[in-house]
Design a protein around this nucleic acid. Structure first.
Length: 275
DNA sequence: CGGACAACCTGGCGGC
DNA sequence: TGCCGCCAGGTTGTCC
């Protein structure tokens, strides 16, 4: 579900409700949701800690507490929201973990497919491993991007999905960025021209920025922290538009499989030759 | 390193 | 209506 724009939207939605709050207790209903330390240790160690700062790194939600970092990854179907102790939320049906705050409110983590994970660590990399550059930061520059593409013979789409290369891009925004840049998803990365690399650099940023502005894409499970749907799904160029006309040339969008992921592209605008 | 594939899981949807 | 197979926004590990 959630890629960079969806995670960013969730972070913005819970930030004000969490900052300054102190943890009174924590509970879980699915042990595998709590990755490390052990569920018993995590729910004990977090008690008494105060939320100081909430931010996003890649697709991870990071809550800086006064002692540790509470790190959450939504994976496919995770939802994170803050509500009153006695409030009922439609996502509570799949509640896996929750934190009792000191103001009669709770931070709840719901996740129907149980792929989501929670960590309590001192060092962020203990949860995330080594991550690539943030595509919306100044560290992501076109010249470096082009230079790195030159070293990779791998297909461009799965390369964009590698979180150790560039973070935050998932299946939706990979298809959207490649379509906007008019690059075929199966092009070998090291065959992109400088112009193509620069176009892709720009469209990655544009697609992600548009996604944030639209509060993310709600194809299925994703909801904002407030429980509403995003609107980016109504503004896709390629993703989930199989058979519908390309906005540029009218050719029907085709769905194929690339690296075991459904991939949507325009066979006229996105060819295996440079353009 | 690149690529294929299985695992981890549940639920929604289309087809019959 | 009921059942079945397929598909899903992510990540990790194994094998060739």
């Amino acid at each position: 579900m959630p890629e960079l724009p969806e995670v960013e939207t969730v972070v913005r939605g819970i930030r004000a409700q969490l900052e300054g709050r102190q943890v009174q207790a924590a509970h879980y209903t699915w042990a595998n949701t709590l990755h490390s330390p052990s569920p018993e240790q995590l729910t004990a160690r977090i008690v008494g800690q105060r939320f100081e700062r909430i931010y996003r790194r890649a697709k991870y939600i990071v809550c800086a507490l006064d002692q540790d970092l509470l790190v959450i990854h939504l994976r496919m179907t995770g939802r994170l929201y803050v509500c009153a102790n006695d409030a009922e939320n439609e996502a509570d049906r799949w509640l896996r973990f929750w934190v009792q705050l000191d103001n009669q409110q709770q931070l709840r983590f719901s996740d129907s497919r149980k792929f989501g994970r929670v960590w309590l660590v001192n060092d962020l990399t203990q949860a995330t491993g080594q991550l690539g550059v943030e595509p919306l930061s100044d560290d992501f520059d076109a010249a470096t991007f082009y230079a790195q593409l030159r070293t990779r013979p791998k297909m461009i789409k799965p390369l964009l999905l590698e979180q150790g290369f560039v973070v935050g891009i998932g299946n939706i925004y990979a298809d959207e960025a490649l379509h906007r840049a008019q690059i075929h998803p199966m092009r070998a990365a090291n065959t992109l021209t400088e112009d193509e690399a620069h176009r892709l650099h720009a469209t990655i940023r544009a697609a992600l920025t548009d996604g944030i502005a639209r509060q993310g894409a709600s194809i299925g499970w994703y909801r904002t922290a407030e429980g509403s749907k995003g609107e980016m799904q109504d503004h896709f160029f390629a993703y989930d538009r199989t058979g519908e006309p390309c906005y540029t040339c009218g050719t029907p969008i085709v769905k194929m499989w690339v690296a075991q992921r459904g991939t949507h592209y325009c066979p006229t605008c996105q060819t295996l030759e440079s353009k």
